[in-house]
Amino acid sequence: MNQNSAPPSGRQRRADLLPPETLAMLGGLEFTARKVVEGALLGLHASPRRGISAEFAELRAYRPGDDFRLVDWRMVGRSDRWFVKEFHEDTHLSAMVLLDASASMDWSSDPGRLPTKFWYGRLLAAAFALLLLRQGDRVGCAAFDERVREWLPPRGGRGQEARLLRRLAGVEASGRTEAGEPLRDAALRLRRPGLVILVSDLLVDPPPVERALRYLAHRGHHVVVAHLMDPGERRLSGGGRAILRDPETGDRVRIAMADAREAYDASVEAALRQWKSALRPAGIEHHLVDTSLAPARALRALTRARGRG
């Protein structure tokens, strides 16, 4: 049985664990996103050390003038040599969520039950942004199709929450996807290296997008790609003959589903492998997000990425 169609049980009171169709019934983006974030925060373990960075980096030889509090007295006792401990600098994260708002995102294989990719992506973007904001990070967002349509620079604070939700709620999916140019534009606008989350169905021409993502990584950003995929796109189902129309290009193809299924599925798998193999060498994370699943899983993946950002 499809878990998406299962009603929320008592154990599933955390909103981030609700199936998308149930989340879609809760209300607008702001309310839903906040619920998802609250649920996600409940799932996180409390850190014993707060506010400062405690991540050990390395030992180095003592130099005159070093703070005595940083001397590693144990090493002095063992080796009779003076070493001081060095820690990573703990700064606020600057994150940018890039949301694909092209027409291809506004599609669901089961419009009556399953939300569109755009709805799912917008929820995911909003929830992750709120999550980061509540952790004190600076978050911005952008929506693009052939160009950047909305741009909210990364900032922190509760005011940013409202702005961000308002901006995202006002975005509609339309136009063609030319992600390469908008990503380059974003790379130029983001001066401070940080975390860049691309939420897209990646129904684009891969080479320009790959180049743009590598460029972002080259600029020092930690790039994470949330590759949204409707289950109807992952596997071609159904039978008979149909005329399939690309909502972005208007191309029409008349096919027999049964005949095209095997080739289509192989083509999708090959495309996914291609994305992973193209992005991994550049340190870009690629996460496939099934829009029929609860957003908690995708949110956790993005949260883990924040730790690496």
Binding site: R245, D246, E248, V253, R254, I255
Partner: peptide, 15 residues
């Protein structure tokens, strides 16, 4: 034969 919207048409294009 009905016409349906299908954004992932590009995956079919090769074949």
């Amino acid at each position: 034969t009905r016409e349906e919207s299908f954004p992932a048409l590009r995956y079919l294009l090769s074949d």
